[in-house]
Amino acid sequence: MYNHHLITFITVVEAGSFIKAAQRLYISPNAVTKQINILEEHLGIKLLNRSHRGVTLTDEGRVIYNGAKHIIEESNQIVDEAKRLEESKKNIIRVGVSLGHSYEILLKHWNKNIVNAKKFEFSYVPISDNTEDYYELLNHLGEKIDIISDITDASFLKGRVNAFTLTLLPVLLAVPITHPLANKDIIDPRELMHETIIIPKRGFIPTVDNIFDTITTKCKNTVQFETVTQYTYETYNIALAQNKLLFSHEAWQHTHPMFRHIPVKWDFKQPYGILYPLHPTKEVLSFVMALGRRG
């Protein structure tokens, strides 16, 4: 908003010499001299009296010096006021969170988005992992909550919400810490023979269906499967009590303290991202578009 050579000029005056000004500005004395010469030429005014003892202001230079300090101070105040106004216009995005719907993956991707991050602010709203409550929330997404982190390929999402995939998370196995497999660093699918895995019902999540088919083939139908509509905290408690396994991924690793989430020797990955309303507000749509740019 002002000629930045004025900063150099003010520094020279207050330091008393080109050399001391250069030290304060972390540039060379020659660069300081050049900037002052350019400023004097631009203004058509001699600003400084130079001598071996340093510099002093000319009468004209004193007028410029006093005015420049006022200009810079006022300019900084204007910029600060504009920034405060921008801050006040931040769009608030209400994020539904629970043990099963962590916001960590969202933040990991959003924090890469330095430019757009300043335009939005998150407000975290606790939600229920109960199946009926969750479906009801999805049916009314946008009323009290704008977005939720979740898997993005589930069949129950169609017609209810929009889904935006942020990443593909390797599918893990959640193993009770008392289970023999809990000591493994990685599990071979053939080690699942005679184990019981609790899974979402068939046709519910394509990734899970593919894993089911693979395990059934490799383990020759020796793996038992029990189905639930949706994983809840109670599902983890049942699996813990009965020493059964669950499918998992990075976003669910902190769901229950009594489970280890262990990689498996397979290439299955779960699409994961955010859910947002079928008819989003312009603020939410702007957020999703900004998230998609990721930079």
Rank of each mutant, 00 (worst) to 15 (best):
A68H: 07
F18I: 08
H254I: 01
S17P: 07
I147V: 15
P206Q: 06
I64D: 03
H254L: 13
M193W: 01
Y236F: 15
F247Q: 04
K218E: 13
N30W: 04
R62T: 02
M289W: 01
W266H: 07
E226Q: 15
E74Q: 15
K69L: 10
K244T: 01
L57V: 02
K46E: 12
Q230I: 00
N162E: 09
P176F: 08
V13L: 11
R202W: 02
H109Y: 15
V161E: 07
A21N: 09
N221A: 13
T229R: 12
I151S: 04
P200G: 00
N139H: 08
R260L: 01
N116A: 15
A174P: 07
D150H: 15
V228S: 01
P257K: 12
L85N: 10
K89M: 12
D209I: 04
N210Y: 06
M258P: 00
V171S: 03
S155K: 14
Q270A: 08
L39F: 07
V95E: 03
H279T: 12
N183Q: 13
T281R: 14
F247L: 15
L168V: 01
T152F: 06
T11H: 08
C219G: 04
M258S: 14
V264D: 06
N139S: 14
I199Q: 09
I148H: 09
K158W: 06
A15I: 04
L291A: 09
F18L: 15
D267P: 01
L99F: 10
Y2Q: 09
P200N: 00
E234G: 02
N49K: 12
I177W: 03
R190T: 14
E191P: 00
S248Y: 03
I45Y: 04
W110N: 06
I38V: 13
Y231N: 00
N113H: 10
V32Q: 10
N139D: 13
L166W: 11
T152V: 05
K90M: 13
P126F: 07
P277V: 06
Q23D: 12
P200H: 00
I198R: 01
L43W: 03
V32C: 12
Q35E: 13
L47T: 03
D153L: 08
I38P: 00
L47I: 03
V161C: 13
I27K: 13
Y65E: 03
G61Q: 04
L99R: 14
P277N: 08
H254F: 12
S123G: 01
V63W: 07
F287N: 08
H261P: 02
P200S: 00
T58Y: 09
K69N: 11
H101Q: 11
W110D: 04
N237L: 05
R24C: 10
I147S: 06
S28C: 02
K282C: 02
A68K: 08
P189D: 04
K83W: 05
T33E: 08
V115H: 12
T8F: 05
F225K: 11
H249G: 00
L99Q: 10
R53E: 11
S102K: 10
S155L: 07
H179A: 05
R53K: 15
P257T: 01
L173M: 10
G44Y: 08
E40R: 10
R50P: 01
I238V: 15
A290F: 09
L291D: 06
V223T: 15
R62M: 08
R202T: 05
R160H: 11
D185Y: 08
Y276V: 03
I215P: 09
I27L: 06
A182V: 04
K89C: 02
V223M: 10
L245R: 11
P189L: 05
